[in-house]
Amino acid sequence: MTVAWFGTFWDVYSNLVLSVGTNALLALSIWLTLACGMLSIANAAFMAIGAYASALLTLNFGWPFPVALAAGMAAPALMAFLIGRPTLRLSGVYLAMATLAFGEVVRIVLLNTDRVTGGALGLNGIPQLTRWWHVALALAVTLAVLWRMRRSRIGRAFEAIKEDETAAGLMGIDVAGYKMLAFVLGAAIAGLAGALNAHLTFFIGPGEYGFDRAVEILTMAILGGIGSLTGPVVGAVILTLLPELLRALQNFRLVFNGLILVLIVLFLPRGIWDTERLRRWAGIVRRQA
């Protein structure tokens, strides 16, 4: 009985559940740069590069999936490395805008190289190779690596750079090097999410990786809260499921989607997963008990 129920549930919602997973990866990819004090919104573009690189390999050359996934991480990481040096000198809003412009350029290049990428028609008939445990494993490994990193010298360096870049430099921290590390690693995670997603949905096209996606990734991370690793994951879960949960509202459902976004920003300043607030609540409960 339970098994049958789960079977139907999985038939209907497997894609949604796996989307939650890839979106969580994307939110973590931007968390990494945010944790280092950089607002880079090139993650949609890195996702695109990862998706196209891996899909072209499996589709045209029949490469094994793990190799294609690795290539889907390596290609955006390389791209990040190349543009990182000049770009990461920028800070604040200027970095955001430069990375946004870079994203647009990537999208237009995909549109114009239609012999390879299919242009606006995108790539069709991508083999559906992504299994649920691929996504679960990718998410688990990413979380483990990032968790470990937070508690290491690298994490402390990120924290110092985020607090005050100049002071961190004076303390002898290699600011440019650590920033580059966050940027390149973030690009690789976004590429992985792109590669997994491409092999889940049979189809990819340049339209998916534009301004809207960039903003959506940022929103997931901020909404969930960037104070911890749980925050971005929670943000991804909520933003992916919200439109589905609101399906009953029909025509005006996206109005409520927007409304909920505004309300969360207004009333939960540190995002939904605010460790301090949670600890406070836990404290109240303990005191009462």
């Binding site: 901020i222 109005v255 976004l261 505004v262 920003v265 300043p269």
Partner: peptide
Amino acid sequence: RPLRARNAPHLIPMIATIGVGIILTNAIQG
């Protein structure tokens, strides 16, 4: 105004205005 009052970092109002944009666009479409 509420975001100003609590001195939210400049990213926060930007995300709030994304939500406002979604509300207005879909209300007009509805």
